[in-house]
Design a protein around this nucleic acid. Structure first.
Lengths: 210, 210
DNA sequence: TAGATTGTTAATCGATTAACAATC
DNA sequence: TAGATTGTTAATCGATTAACAATC
């Protein structure tokens, strides 16, 4: 039984579908690929092909059931199970993410924050106490966190990632301005805010010309 | 004189090249497309094709001059000119971004922060005072800011975007969990943190299976 | 000059869109 | 049943990679 490999771009789009179905919960019973495409500024073909990778969620002549799709896509994304995460770097960005309400809504629970600044260690943020980064390895080794968010300065990020990988972390969301090197089997997603800002800067310049 | 259109993916990669050349300033004189590809985990062909869109920056038998490329890519991205921006939404994320040191290093200057909470208006963040969102329209209309970062709750984001567009903003970096509708001629970049986290969640689950 | 390495074109690969038979 | 709309295959489009002549 061979499964078609699912392209990465499809997975990247999945959260947008999820968001839409979530927003329509209790508002309407069903949606067609055409309507979905209009709302999400994509094509009906793409919607159908994307969703078909995971099995026949739709019904001919009817469309897609909002409640069912919300549940199914949630399962695919792994949101049905509780997920624990930690943050390394208790700077402003780390603290902002610690309190990000959407993360909690979606079932992610913050277990700990780590920092190397003695001034910060011990303070409380987002309901958890900031721990010394010296305790990071043990914490992860004990399986206390499935994934980690790195918000340290770039110089420290690779070292932190090494510790995480050596102790069996499953995934990393990286905000440091460099591309992390991780062990195979560890999922990584880099969010380079500055890069996005620079690309935006280019498009602003282009608009000005046009 | 017709110019080849530059694919969006190429622009998205440009900041990574920029980051690398920047890091090598004063360290080395030149880099070949092969070396660059190894560091950035891409292919030499792609490096050469990407850079060739902007003219012949390289030299056969030599490679690319670090200092020249740093300057040139900076110009292309529009970093040679000072850029002013504002933040709407003085929550934790907005405040974190207000102090983001890399933004300043790269030549972006924060001019103002807006919020609708009277408790927050008047306080100082990142060297600027928080203004009432009622003053947003006038501020933008006077050309005080080239682009805006939206960090409001999703319910408020489209309304803010409308005000920005009506008053001539050039670009928007949106962190609210919805896709903004903007006037033509306004560059938008959406950063959906939750979406990225959800996609990561999928990959973590996949790893576990494998 | 000989070796290195670019810029660019052609070949390949993958993703999106169009079309339509299947079927609710 | 007739109309709507899916799931899927084929056609198209675009992006990446390979190859190589140009040239420093």
């Amino acid at each position: 039984m061979k499964k078609k490999a699912i392209p990465e771009v499809v997975i990247d789009r999945l959260p947008r579908y999820y968001r839409y179905f979530r927003s329509q919960l209790g508002q309407r019973e069903k949606v067609s690929s055409r309507e979905l495409a209009d709302v999400l500024s994509t094509s009906a073909s793409q919607v159908r092909l994307d969703l078909s990778y995971f099995g026949g969620f739709g019904l001919q002549g009817y469309g897609y059931n909002v409640e069912e799709l919300y549940t199914r896509i949630g399962e695919i994304l792994g949101i049905d199970q509780e997920q624990y995460y930690i943050i390394i770097g208790a700077g402003r960005l780390g603290r902002a993410l610690a309190d990000f309400p959407v993360f909690r809504e979606v079932g992610f629970t913050l277990r700990a924050i780590f920092d190397n600044d003695p001034q910060v260690v011990g303070s409380r943020i987002g309901g958890v106490q900031v721990s010394d980064v010296a305790q990071l390895a043990g914490f992860v080794r004990n399986g206390q966190a499935g994934f980690a968010i790195i918000t340290t300065p770039p110089e420290a990020a690779q070292g932190v990632a090494d510790i995480l990988c050596q102790n069996g972390i499953k995934g990393i969301l990286n905000f440091a301005a460099l591309d992390l090197n991780v062990s195979p089997g560890v999922a990584v997603s880099n969010i380079h805010l500055t890069d996005r800002l620079l690309a935006l800067s280019y498009w602003i310049k282009e608009q000005r010309k046009a």
